[in-house]
Amino acid sequence: MQLPFWFSKEQISALATAASQWFAKLQEWALWPAMQSNPETCAEAVLHLIAWQRDIDRFKGEPLSLFRKRVKYAYINAKDAGSVAGFKRIFMRLGIGYVEIEERMDGVDWDVVDIQLSDSQLAENQQLLTVLIQHYGRTCRRYRWTVITPMKLQITAHEFNNDYQVVTAKL
């Protein structure tokens, strides 16, 4: 930066510092609108506007990080909502984890969809699961939670030898 020569060295450095701070602030103001289009980094007030645009409502007690994630993935979740594989991807994206989904099971009404998840998944995400079913669940379907508990099973194989004889007697 070329400054007039009649300034002393201290005045020049003070003016250069003030000018660089001003232009840094100006750059921050200019970039602010561009930064607000990302749901993960935008201001909370702007996040609510983006959520309204994407038809996402914040449920009571929902952490801000989860709300940001739901808003971020709203379009792709709406696209995935029509299939079993897509529904599993929705659960993975939102941090619930792996679930099993079964449809049209023998001996159960055709409209029942069975969602199998662990006890901890159900306990930690109860409100989120309800919101997901209400928002992305298929019309005319009933959803049933089935808790699966993984258990360790140990089977040991042993050799078993047996000799036998058949004796018959006739009179």
Score class of each variant (00 low, 15 high):
M1W: 04
L171R: 11
T139L: 07
L153N: 10
A85M: 08
L128W: 03
C140M: 08
V46D: 07
C42W: 01
Y143A: 03
E10P: 01
A78W: 12
A16P: 01
Y136R: 04
K152N: 12
E44S: 13
L31N: 13
P33G: 02
D57Y: 08
A51P: 01
N38T: 02
V131S: 11
E62S: 09
R142N: 10
S13M: 15
L153S: 10
W22E: 11
H48A: 06
W145M: 07
R58D: 05
V113A: 00
C42M: 08
Q126G: 05
G97T: 00
M151L: 14
A157V: 14
C140Y: 12
I12G: 11
Q11M: 12
D80G: 02
Q165P: 02
E28L: 09
D111N: 15
L117P: 02
D111G: 06
R58C: 10
A19F: 14
A45G: 08
I148E: 05
F160M: 09
Q27D: 13
G95N: 04
F23V: 13
F160T: 13
I12T: 15
E10N: 08
F5E: 06
E102R: 08
A45I: 05
L15K: 03
V84Q: 08
L94G: 06
I96K: 01
E124K: 11
V113K: 00
M151T: 10
I76G: 08
N125S: 02
Y143H: 00
C140V: 06
P150Q: 05
A18D: 09
D163K: 12
Q53C: 04
A78E: 14
A34W: 14
Q11L: 10
F91P: 00
E44H: 05
S83Q: 03
V167C: 01
H158K: 11
M35R: 15
W52D: 14
R70P: 00
D163V: 09
H135N: 13
I101T: 07
G97R: 00
W29K: 13
S37Q: 14
A123M: 04
L3C: 04
